[in-house]
Amino acid sequence: MDKSTTKGCHHIGLTVAKLEESADFFTSLLGWNEVRRDDEYPAVFVSDGSIMVTLWATKEEPSSQFNKNKNVGLHHVAFNVENEDDLNSIFRKLENNGIKIEFSPELLRQGPAKHMMCYEPSGIRVEFIWPGN
């Protein structure tokens, strides 16, 4: 194929068990904007100005937490950060607010890129990456 028929990502839709806490993770902790709500579903749409994430509330209690090594589905979602200071700042803010951290900022492979991984309040793995340039 000579040319891709798609052009980037429009949005990511995530089903969450804790809608308000998950929305707060993006808006209060990461500084994203709430774009709109759909109280009938319910859902909250948030954006960092480059990507939109749609948070859809579960209709029933989840039967079990997602296991990245066992289940087919979203392994994690990864977001770029502009610089290493931003990566470290996100880490401190999340840690200070009781967000579960899988690993703190570290080299990605041999570097210079660095990344960290956490879990948003509904248990979805979220990675933050500074490309190191």
Rank of each mutant, 00 (worst) to 15 (best):
K114F: 06
A57F: 04
H115R: 08
Q110G: 13
L30H: 04
H115K: 08
I101G: 05
N97W: 03
N133W: 09
P112S: 07
F66Y: 14
K18L: 13
A23E: 06
V77E: 06
H75P: 05
I12K: 00
D48F: 07
L19H: 02
I99G: 02
N133F: 10
K3H: 00
T54N: 10
N88P: 03
V72M: 11
E120H: 01
G31W: 05
I90M: 02
P121N: 01
V46A: 06
V44S: 01
N96Y: 05
N67P: 03
D48P: 06
E61D: 12
I129R: 06
I90C: 01
A57C: 05
L107A: 10
I99T: 06
T6D: 02
D86M: 13
N83K: 05
G111D: 08
P131F: 11
K7R: 13
N69L: 13
M1E: 03
S50F: 11
F128D: 00
I90G: 04
A78T: 09
I51P: 01
V81A: 06
G111I: 05
D48T: 07
E61T: 12
L94W: 03
E127A: 04
E20Q: 07
K7V: 03
V44F: 01
M117F: 11
W130E: 00
H75C: 09
T54P: 07
M117L: 14
A78G: 14
Y119I: 07
V72F: 14
K68E: 10
K18E: 13
E106W: 09
N71M: 05
A43G: 11
H75M: 08
I51K: 08
L107R: 09
N133Q: 13
I129Y: 10
N80Q: 12
R92T: 13
T5I: 10
E40S: 11
P112K: 07
F103Q: 05
V77P: 05
L87R: 04
S89K: 14
R92F: 13
L87I: 06
K68S: 12
G98C: 06
V81Q: 03
F45N: 01
E60S: 09
D2S: 15
Q65M: 15
L19S: 01
F25W: 08
V81G: 05
E120W: 05
I12T: 13
H115Q: 12
G98M: 02
N33A: 11
N67W: 01
G73H: 04
I101Q: 03
R109D: 13
D85F: 12
D2R: 15
T15P: 08
V77M: 11
A78I: 07
V35I: 09
Y41W: 15
C118S: 07
N133T: 13
F66K: 08
N97Q: 06
V126P: 03
F79Q: 02
E84R: 15
K68V: 11
N88V: 02
M52A: 12
P112Y: 06
E106D: 10
R125E: 09
N97I: 03
S89H: 11
D24M: 00
N67I: 08
H75A: 11
A113M: 01
V126F: 02
S63T: 14
P105K: 00
V53T: 10
D2V: 15
W130K: 02
L87H: 02
